[in-house]
């Protein structure tokens, strides 16, 4: 069980974030749920790179050659965190504009743009 626990935790976080996205009645809440989905990938990456009885891959105090955890996944996670935060900021900015233009941030009240274009079927 312990061997797959972090993976399952990441999967749970992914799905619960999706649940928040699918059922959200508030676009800010939706963006935060999306951030939760993204955070599941941080956990998954780090879990894949973790090594038992190894230390952080920084050779300040330890000598080169000591067992360290995988630095690759850490670099990837770092990038992923930046990207995630960036996207969140951008989507929040768009949400503010939606609030200004539509006066609501409930996705139920602003459905697809399909209706705006008229429902003519051209026949």
């Amino acid at each position: 069980m312990f061997a797959v626990l972090p993976y399952l935790a990441a999967g749970w976080i992914f799905l619960i974030g999706c649940y928040g996205l699918a059922t959200s009645r508030n676009l800010v809440h939706a963006v935060v749920s999306l951030a939760v989905v993204q955070s599941s990938t941080y956990l998954l990456l780090l879990a894949v790179g973790w090594k038992r009885d190894a230390t952080a891959p920084v050779f300040g105090d330890i000598s080169p050659g000591a067992p360290v955890v995988d630095p690759i996944v850490q670099a990837l996670t770092l990038t992923d965190i930046v990207v995630g935060a960036t996207v969140s900021a951008l989507l929040l900015a768009l949400t503010i504009q939606v609030a200004k233009r539509h006066g609501t941030i409930d996705p139920e009240e602003i459905r697809s743009l399909e209706q705006d274009s008229g429902d003519d079927d051209g026949q």
Partner: peptide, 14 residues
């Protein structure tokens, strides 16, 4: 415009 961009952003990020 802003609404379309938001939907685009959320779905693509997912």
């Amino acid at each position: 415009s802003v609404h379309g961009a938001l939907g685009f952003g959320i779905v693509n990020t997912l």
